[in-house]
Design a protein around this nucleic acid. Structure first.
Lengths: 196, 196
DNA sequence: CCTACCGATCGGTAGG
DNA sequence: CCTACCGATCGGTAGG
């Protein structure tokens, strides 16, 4: 009953979360059973509850971890880049890199958040709305400073972030392209239609 | 037991499919119960089985209907447009329009196909792969005829179709933009980075 | 970390 | 279109 959170258990917990992210991505949160998760870790289902509180807690860990990382990056970008164009490029590159390097967790945060329970659901949606506003502000600033040749910042943000996020639909069947090529080519495609 | 497929029952069946599309989109296929579907239609769960065969048949209907419509449009575009640029624009516009006008069904076909059972799963994935190949061919042709200034047609297809598909993530919170504006602005953003 | 087991809910059928 | 009900599976707990 007592859940011990020692260093070793934290590692175990991290392993459970990682495997959960993989399964939630592959089969969806609802279609993934705790027995299945336990199986893939080589234990029985009840054993999991020595390390975690519940199935929904696993989802929550993944979603809030991702939300924090994206917000943290935005802090860095806002402070360390000069022009709006540089900010946009830095944001796009971070999104591409997270998508390629933390695929399972990003995918789950993008798709399975709707299975979060209140109040975490509201909190997650608030954070996301906040993130979008901050990105939008970067674009608006770029218009003001005459760096971007877009007329509608809302549509531009929608178009660009969606294009990057769309990497998830193609994950697994990318042929003949290295991660570097993909990133550079995509940035070029997207920015050349925007940067003056 | 005997499932009567008269005209009136077909209408009922269509209504069930529509409501299922809405629920599958909102809660996901696995998290949607037949009792919930029945409830939202004002009947008891067992009554549904007079009109449909199973829950998975509902998913299959939605997915194959969408796959057919996209393929059919590609037939039309290939025969009725002259240049590669015109073909690309027609494809992009069709995707945007379907996304905005048949949102629930497109969303379900895009996200919940993984819950299809064999052999429908393989068939669906084959169709999709085929569609992507045909779109890729349009881009390759545009390069050959010197109409497009892209270097990697694969990345271009990925970027453009993903951007359009990304409309789904923003569905519901589009401010101050009419559907027409959104479509034109998006086409402009995407093509100006591509068309010579 | 396991066995044994719980109440709830699932998709679907029988029979009318 | 309903009531009554099925076998299976779910997330999770008790107790060791």
């Amino acid at each position: 009953m007592a859940k011990i959170q020692s260093g070793e258990n934290s590692t175990k917990k991290e392993a459970i979360i990682q495997k959960a992210a993989f399964l939630f991505k592959t089969k969806g949160y609802s279609a993934t059973s705790m027995r299945e998760l336990a199986d893939s870790l080589g234990v029985e289902a009840p054993s999991l509850y020595n390390y975690i509180g519940s199935k929904s807690e696993l989802l929550q860990s993944i979603c809030s971890k991702m939300a924090n990382e994206f917000h943290l990056n935005l802090d860095v970008v806002e402070n360390n880049t000069a022009t709006a164009v540089a900010k946009v490029e830095a944001i796009v590159r971070f999104h591409i890199q997270k998508m390629l390097n933390n695929f399972d967790e990003v995918f789950v945060a993008n798709h399975e958040w709707k299975h979060l329970k209140e109040p975490m659901l509201s909190s997650f949606l608030n954070q996301r709305r906040n993130y979008e506003k901050r990105v939008m502000a970067v674009f608006e600033n770029g218009i003001e400073k005459n760096e971007l040749r877009i007329t509608n910042p809302y549509v531009a943000v929608l178009t660009i972030l969606s294009a990057v996020r769309g990497l998830e639909f193609w994950y697994g069947h990318k042929k003949n392209v290295t991660q570097e090529e993909l990133e550079n080519e995509m940035v070029k495609n997207l920015l050349n239609g925007i940067v003056k």
